[in-house]
């Protein structure tokens, strides 16, 4: 991607007046298969998420939570409906712009972790920074800090197959957080964790939300949902309830990301705030 393109995308995503929603989806549907075997994973979801909000999505297995999350993370496209991220219509972004959005804007934790095999935890966590063009020494420091944050500082050199399920999940969380994205999307980030590790990870999430970052997570556990400001319930691909537990703190939206540490790159540092 040329520098000009890159700057253009960043501006497009930045020139949103503060207070405009981070996520705005309208009548989102996703169908799989054809004829008899058609599955309506999402059957018309409309949703607006404000900057600085902390949303928990709940619902039974197969209700379309992951499907929605993949679309929000720009990893998949909806069958119909619109998705505006920071006011930009995602369907109009090209491949290069999408790569940039995924890298700089969004941190994604997969339900199945999706670590790269035979590659150390540290190298896995460094990856988003490498694609952002961060120099190797700085990359290492920040990746180690992220691993430390999820309590895995002493497992940095282990390959994924040498880690327990819960440890792999925490590496995946560290990888999503390392680039300090303004939007964190986490698909059951505590699904494999004991209560201690769950509490640790939730502590980290509370912390980054206080800094003004937006969090959307999927969970089956009420304690986890309790941390969120807002709980959305899905059933058969539709929103059946949307409760606010706590308001979005007014100051949080303006919080500078610098408080959390260094910006992901010198270039986009100030622009994502």
């Amino acid at each position: 991607m040329s520098d000009a393109d890159q700057t253009q995308t960043l501006y497009a995503l930045r020139e949103v007046p503060l207070g405009k929603p981070v996520i705005e989806v309208k009548n989102l549907t996703k169908t799989y298969g054809e004829g008899e075997a058609t599955v309506h994973a999402l059957a018309g979801v409309s949703l607006t998420i404000e900057r600085g909000d902390y949303v928990a999505i709940m619902g039974s297995s197969g209700s379309g939570k992951s499907t929605l999350m993949h679309i929000l993370g720009c990893l998949d496209i909806p069958t119909s409906g619109s998705y505006h991220l920071d006011g930009v219509d995602v369907s109009r972004l090209n491949d290069q712009q999408l790569a940039l959005v995924r890298n700089r804007r969004i941190g994604f934790v997969f339900q199945a972790f999706n670590l790269i095999p035979r590659t150390s935890a540290l190298a896995n966590v460094e990856l988003p920074l490498a694609y952002a063009g961060v120099k190797s020494a700085q990359r290492r420091t920040r990746a180690l800090a992220a691993l430390e944050m999820v309590g895995l500082g002493n497992r940095a050199d282990h390959d994924p197959n040498q880690l327990s399920g819960g440890q792999q999940q925490r590496v995946a969380v560290a990888r999503a957080l390392v680039s300090q994205p303004a939007l964190l999307l986490a698909d059951e980030p505590t699904g494999n964790l004991d209560s201690k590790s769950t509490a640790d990870v939730l502590g980290v999430l509370d912390e980054i939300n206080r800094e003004g970052r937006t969090i959307v997570l999927i969970t089956h556990e009420d304690e986890v949902a309790h941390h969120a400001r807002r709980v959305i319930r899905l059933k058969d691909g539709e929103i059946v309830s949307d409760e606010r537990q706590r308001p979005v703190e007014p100051g949080s939206a303006r919080a500078s990301r610098q408080e959390f540490g260094q910006p992901a790159t010198a270039m986009d540092g100030a622009e994502w705030a």
Partner: peptide, 11 residues
């Protein structure tokens, strides 16, 4: 797929 999800450009 993982690399793309983390924002690796196609190039």
């Amino acid at each position: 797929g993982i690399r793309k999800a983390l924002g690796a450009p196609r190039r």
